Amino acid sequence: MIDREICLKDIADSLAYLSRQVEIYNCVNFYDINIVAEDFYANLLNLIYGYNLINLNVEEKNAPAIDLVDDINRISIQVTSDNTSEKIKESIRKFNEHEHYLNYDRLIVLMLTKKKKYRTIFDTDGKFSFNATNDLIDYTDLMKFIKAKSTKDLKEIKDYLNLELTDKMFQEKNTESSEIDTIIALIEYITKNRELKKNIDTVIDPEYKIKKRFKEFTERIVSEFTTLFTLYGEALEIVNDTLEIDEAQDIITIFYLQDISIRFLELANDSPIEALKLLVDYFEEKMSVNGKKYDRAAIKFYLVNEMIKCNVFPNERSEYNDSK
């Protein structure tokens, strides 16, 4: 993988990891990480956007409505782990109440956790312009902007994240991979080790596969996919966006997945549940030669998702036609 893709992978993994940590810590009423994140994001946003942000709370603890300010560009930022519409309304109300619009033209609300899809209209009483699409941001929005940066800039951002997150706060990342890192590592392994296989004449029909071909396992497959998608669906979306993977995957990769999954399905006597377990074991062992631990459930989710897309355990046309 080229340097640029490595940088993007590491950046996406670090930002997603921080977001999860904030969410987990806040669930147990541990909010110190929110305060640490203010300085962290001030420096990060300066690197990404070329801002001149400073942490206002250093000079004025619990400054109302805003945490980071750039007096040169007249930008203010509220850093929060509360992603509710009520919190946003409160930030706008306090911004107006303290007349921050006299010094700053823009209020950005930076969510430390994943933002929601807001239908609320946020009224500023005409004091300043607030666009929910551009002014409510989370780490996924940062990644969209970061992707357009030069490789040199990406390396600088990656180095900063490594220094502030990996080295200082989350050293366990060196030996344990997140779901994003796991899925990317799995894709990397497949890309590097795939072989050109003979094309198998297949039919893409997920409903037939789940409800008829594997009817004895339908309830189990649907239940596992639903549960795994809830946990890992967002991670896969981030991976696809970061690596710019679309639905039209490399045909060699598809052939590889079809071939290896058919072989394991035969070993499992046509049990997709047992074959999935064998596939997870296989990929986990192959990926772990460097001693790093990977998320088994993330590997399983990737494979189950590919099964739904009919790239794993494909419907061979001859059998498909015979069943009709």
Score class of each variant (00 low, 15 high):
K209V: 01
N193E: 09
N134R: 11
L44G: 03
R194L: 12
I121T: 11
I137C: 00
T242W: 06
K127H: 14
K286P: 00
K127Q: 07
E176C: 07
V58E: 01
D10T: 15
V28D: 06
E224N: 03
P64G: 05
K173I: 08
F229M: 05
A268E: 10
Y302M: 13
K149V: 01
I204Q: 13
C27D: 14
M1H: 14
R263E: 15
R93Q: 02
Q78F: 02
T242H: 06
Y17I: 03
N240C: 08
I88K: 00
V22H: 12
T113Y: 10
N290M: 07
V304G: 06
N311L: 06
I273A: 07
F170T: 00
N321V: 00
A185F: 01
L136M: 11
L276F: 15
V280N: 12
T242Q: 06
Q78S: 00
D259M: 09
D153I: 00
E23S: 14
T113W: 10
C310F: 00
E216H: 06
G291K: 06
V22Y: 07
I262G: 01
N321S: 08
A12S: 15
I262T: 08
K277M: 11
D205I: 05
F225V: 05
R106Q: 13
F30S: 12
F283L: 10
V304N: 10
N96H: 09
K117S: 02
N62F: 12
I54G: 04
A275R: 03
Y118E: 02
G50R: 13
Y256E: 15
I54Y: 10
I157C: 04
T151Y: 08
E172I: 06
D13K: 06
K147V: 03
K192W: 09
L161S: 12
E224F: 02
I6A: 04
A12F: 08
I262Q: 15
T253L: 14
A268N: 12
V280P: 09
E234K: 09
T175A: 05
G126H: 13
P314R: 05
K158D: 15
L154F: 13
R119Y: 13
D205V: 04
I2S: 14
E237H: 02
I48G: 01
V109D: 03
L154G: 07
I48P: 04
K293F: 11
I190Y: 01
K149R: 11
S288I: 04
K94R: 12
A268H: 10
L136I: 15
I183G: 09
I108A: 02
